[in-house]
Design a protein around this nucleic acid. Structure first.
Lengths: 151, 151
DNA sequence: TCCAAACAGGACCCAAGAGGTCCAGTATGC
DNA sequence: GCATACTGGACCTCTTGGGTCCTGTTTGGA
């Protein structure tokens, strides 16, 4: 585990399918379904969520469709995850929301999970939609500890 | 989301509870339950899993219990996650196992997820049980892209 | 004015898995 | 032999992932 949901996975794929020469061209759910091979009802579901969260803009009626609300180089993977499944939280206690568990306050690992979570979040903020449509993501340097002697 | 399961969370807490002056002292499930405030059946379940995966050693009978099989500075968070919930895989396609989805091969984001996954995995390999019991985890430097002009 | 295209908002369903309890076995030491 | 502890698995409930479908509503064009 430590997994994003399929819907989030689809969201990234669908958004990737909307990136093209004219970055803000309009696409219908039907077209995106054919392009991505994801069933059309599911594509619609994803797009409705993304529209509600402001990542895409919807236009109704004939000649309607969806278009990216911003350039793909300004939309991060972290944002997409956040839009579809809420704030990134590796553990219940690692998000801002408090009062999650009865161990709170005297849990020895609590603050450390927050830090791990922040690091992962930062990492995903560093990867954009424009990166994701490239054949190969630039090499990522793993997290590295700082401020304390290693080992 | 992008969350580890509660059982994994418990595993880290229970293992943290086993770290003390004598790093390899024996602890009963009952003692660890009291120490961590996690219900005893759940503690037992966690420990059984960890024992099967070799992270702790079990001793039956009177004066039995569990003890860390290695020093806490050699057990990583990545190992614990792996032991409890299997290989870390942010998406279905990001683990080694293939044949996961019908988009395979022509999915534009596939290889990029593998890289993101690897980076997160590496990060979690860099945090040990010994780190987790310290009040404050050393600062983590987020992933950084390399090899391509930033932004 | 009417119709078709396309999104909007839900309800709805199924399956899987998280999360947890309990019980019948088995090893060990006193 | 008995109490203590781990072992293995069955079992249950509840949530949520994952997906479909239906009934609006908006829009443009014939």
């Amino acid at each position: 585990m430590l997994r994003i949901t399929k819907l989030t996975d689809y969201a990234v794929i669908v958004l990737s399918g909307m990136v093209d020469a004219q970055a803000v061209a309009s696409h219908t759910a039907r077209d995106l379904s054919e392009k991505t091979k994801i069933p059309q009802p599911t594509v619609s579901k994803v797009l409705k969520v993304l529209a509600r969260r402001g990542l895409v803009r919807s236009e109704r009626g004939k000649n309607g469709g969806y278009r990216l609300s911003r350039g793909p180089e300004t939309i991060t993977v972290a944002e997409v995850i956040d839009a579809v499944e809420g704030p990134i939280a590796v553990t219940e206690c690692s998000s801002e929301g408090r009062g999650c568990c009865e161990l709170e306050g005297h849990c020895p690992t609590e603050t450390n999970w927050v830090r791990i979570n922040d690091a992962i979040k930062q990492a995903l903020r560093g990867v954009t939609l424009a990166d994701m449509v490239r054949p190969n993501l630039p090499v990522l340097i793993p997290l590295r500890r700082l401020g304390v002697a290693e080992g």
